[in-house]
C-alpha cells in the first residue's frame, strides 16, 4: 500500500522559502501569484491492506516524528 504525507506550515507561521520563491516567480513575470507556501511531501510504502488502519498508524507517525505540531500541519492520502 502506498501513502503520501503532506507537511505544511501552520497559518501565520512565516515561510521565508515561500517568500523567496514568490519573489523569484514575480521577477519572471508571473505577476498573478499572490502567495507561496512551501512544505514537504513524504511517500510511504506500507505493509497491510486496511486503509483505515494505515491512516491511523500514519497519524501516529505524524504526531511522533514526521511533523512538528508546534508549527506544522499534516494531511494524509492513502491509495
Amino acid at each position: 500500500m502506498k501513502a503520501r504525507v503532506f507537511i505544511t506550515l501552520k497559518k501565520g507561521v512565516l515561510d521565508p522559502q515561500g517568500k523567496a520563491i514568490l519573489g523569484a516567480l514575480r521577477s519572471l513575470g508571473f505577476d498573478e501569484v499572490r502567495d507561496v507556501r512551501t512544505g514537504k511531501l513524504i511517500e510511504l510504502e506500507l505493509e497491510g491492506s486496511s486503509r483505515d488502519e494505515a491512516e491511523k498508524r500514519i497519524e501516529g507517525m505524524c504526531e511522533r516524528l514526521l511533523s512538528n505540531p508546534v508549527v506544522e500541519d499534516y494531511r494524509i492520502e492513502v491509495d
Binding site: P16, Q17, A20, N68, V70
Partner: peptide, 11 residues
C-alpha cells in the same frame, strides 16, 4: 523546552 527553531529568515 517549548517552541521550535525554524529556518533563519534570511534562509
Amino acid at each position: 523546552l517549548p517552541g521550535v527553531l525554524m529556518r533563519n529568515r534570511t534562509l
